[in-house]
């Protein structure tokens, strides 16, 4: 028996919006730790890892580990039927082939439930070891989103370089080229407005902008994004989900032939 009650239902709505364009079908794993997902995009260039810890739910019952295969577009459609202030409860029976999403409005005078058939998906779970990154940059998520959007009107790929000077995003296209540098800036009114650069070694990598733009769909989940870079590893863009966990996007670089 699985029963997860999330008071801040809008979080789940935002999580689905953040993933549904990148990943079509995915297995949600439920265990004592929490509600999690790991999935790749269809071309296996990007990977998303989600964790919503059990402590973040008002009620969390998961009698045994359960994997539920779902089409994220369909889940997103169902969650669009929930109001932003609704409480969302996810229910499933052990060994069953359906999941139920229940929505309660704040006044508790409207209760909706939607039952969805689960899918049997081949799960390809990758082991992601802890790594030391050459550079870790925390910046306002809206700023990162703006940069990716602006640069994609000029080019298809971006070179992200971190030096002592800051983090530089560069692109080139038919009309010309563009460089945006964000310097470390900790003299801000609120900590979430800061740009903080931790650099052990300078790093410069090339990425496809369309994936980065897709990651920025998670912007509403967190005011900051943490970008980790190493020359031998995929980029990680992490959006922390307050009191609950995270959504992390991994992106393999483009390498000179």
């Amino acid at each position: 028996m699985l029963e997860l009650r999330l008071v801040q239902g809008s979080l789940l709505k935002k999580v689905l919006e953040a993933m549904k364009d990148l990943v079509t079908d995915a297995n949600f794993d439920c265990s004592a730790t929490g509600f999690s997902l790991q999935a790749m995009d269809s071309s296996h260039v990007a990977l998303v890892a989600l964790l919503l810890r059990s402590e973040g739910f008002e009620h969390y019952r998961c009698d045994r580990n359960i994997t539920m295969g779902m089409n994220l577009n369909n889940v997103s459609k169902l969650l669009k039927c929930a109001g932003n202030d609704d409480i969302i409860t996810i229910k499933a029976d052990d060994g069953g082939d359906t999941v139920t999403f229940m929505f309660e409005n704040p006044k508790q005078d409207k209760i909706s439930d939607f039952e969805m058939k689960l899918m049997d998906l081949d799960s390809e779970h990758l082991g992601i070891p802890d790594a030391e990154y050459h550079a870790i940059v925390r910046m306002p998520s809206l700023e990162f989103s703006r940069i990716c959007k602006d640069l994609s009107s000029i080019g298809d790929t971006v070179v992200i370089s971190v030096t002592k000077e800051g983090i530089k995003f560069s692109t080139r296209g038919d009309i010309g080229n563009a460089n945006i540098v964000c310097r470390q800036n900790t003299t801000v009114d609120k900590p979430e407005e800061a740009t903080v650069i931790q650099m052990n070694e300078a790093v410069s990598l090339t990425f496809a902008l369309r994936y980065l733009n897709s990651f920025t769909k998670a912007t509403s989940l967190s005011e900051t994004v943490t970008i980790s870079l190493s020359s031998e590893l995929p980029l990680v863009a992490e959006y922390k989900i307050a009191d609950m966990g995270y959504i992390k996007f991994y992106l393999a670089p483009k390498i000179e032939d």
Binding site: P234, A252, P253
Partner: peptide, 14 residues
């Protein structure tokens, strides 16, 4: 000319 790497070239299946 740039080649797009895949995630599986960095992380292995478990």
């Amino acid at each position: 000319q740039c080649i797009q790497k895949r995630i599986s070239e960095y992380f292995s299946r478990v």
